[in-house]
């Protein structure tokens, strides 16, 4: 273990320069984020992830945000275990009818001010699963969405761009 730790100190860091905030995301957010909220939160956001019906592909890439290359926490963004501690709900998947109530409750449990980020093509409009008897639709069919990050799944860079735009607008 000592060797591994030592190597970690001697090697140059793997963490990469962040991408620029996404322009389209900035434009979408301009409508929803107010100044008062920005003052209150400072440059830090707590995110609660909710899988509302995803195939798990989106979760894998959200997970990757935490690895040494992307290192999400350096931006003051962190994932929290409870919606009560969250400023942002990050929702994936087409919202299945079996998850609809759980999503509504999670949204209700998140204190104001709060933002919803819908991640993935499924979260946008149900994606490939739209029209099924078991699917309620995209995330915005159930709760108001402030930012969509498209992709199937969006890669970590795309996720980071969207989140940085959110940070720019809120902080």
């Amino acid at each position: 273990m000592r060797n591994l730790l030592l190597q970690g100190l001697l090697q140059s860091a793997l963490t990469e320069t962040p991408p620029a905030a996404d322009d389209a995301a900035l434009a979408e957010l301009a409508k929803s984020v107010d100044r008062a909220a920005r003052r209150r939160l400072g440059r830090s956001l707590s995110i609660r992830e909710v899988d509302a019906g995803s195939c798990n592909g989106c979760e894998l890439e959200i997970h990757a945000l935490g690895n040494a290359f992307y290192d999400l926490e350096r931006f003051g963004l962190r994932f929290v275990a409870s919606p009560r501690h969250a400023d942002v709900l990050m929702v994936t998947g087409p919202v299945t009818k079996n998850m609809r109530q759980a999503l509504e409750r999670t949204y209700a449990a998140t204190p104001d001010p709060k933002w919803v980020v819908a991640v993935g093509d499924c979260a946008f409009d149900g994606g490939l699963f739209a029209g099924s008897y078991a699917v309620a639709g995209g995330v915005s069919a159930i709760v108001p969405v402030d930012l969509h990050i498209r992709g199937c799944p969006p890669n970590p860079t795309a996720l980071l761009k969207g989140l940085l735009a959110l940070l720019e607008k809120t902080a």
């Binding site: 019906g53 998947g93 299945t96 759980a102 490939l128 699963f129 099924s132 008897y133 078991a134 699917v135």
Partner: peptide, 23 residues
């Protein structure tokens, strides 16, 4: 379990092969 049931069997029935492969 069953919370993320999306109805894949149903979506498959009648689907063209390329859409079914994506599903």
């Amino acid at each position: 379990l069953g919370y993320v049931h999306k109805g894949i069997d149903h979506l498959m029935a009648g689907a063209p092969r390329d859409r079914a492969a994506k599903l």
